[in-house]
């Protein structure tokens, strides 16, 4: 029973972070959300008895993809609507 609840919660949080990643205008937050998605996905893989895949997802999904996205944001812009560049100051405070 607890397995079911655990799995359902993880799946729910996963979907929520995916929706958040698509919905959020701030690309940095979206990228962090996709990192969280991979985090939960890796635990789900473990529950589905696939430790190899969980390890790979933890290594590539959580770390590398997030890192390379952040470097890409560093090289470009942080906001989806570039006209709101002034928002940087208001949102990060």
């Amino acid at each position: 029973m607890i397995y079911i609840i655990l799995t359902l919660t993880l799946l729910l949080l996963m979907i929520a972070s995916a929706v958040y990643a698509i919905w959020q205008k701030d690309l940095l937050y979206a990228v962090i959300a996709s990192g969280i998605l991979s985090l939960f996905l890796s635990i789900v893989f473990l529950i589905l008895q696939a430790p190899d895949v969980a390890l790979t997802e933890a290594a590539i999904g959580v770390a590398l993809t997030t890192i390379i996205f952040i470097i890409a944001i560093r090289n470009t812009v942080r906001f989806e609507d570039e006209h709101d560049k002034k928002k940087v100051k208001t949102t990060t405070k």
Binding site: D52, T56, A59, L64
Partner: peptide, 25 residues
């Protein structure tokens, strides 16, 4: 460790390589 023990425990070349690369990062 991860890629040397690829045939005994989860993990392998890709994961181990990724970990080393993140260490350099």
């Amino acid at each position: 460790y991860v890629f040397i023990h690829g045939h005994l425990s989860p993990g392998g070349g890709f994961q181990g390589g990724t970990i080393i690369a993140t260490g350099f990062l």
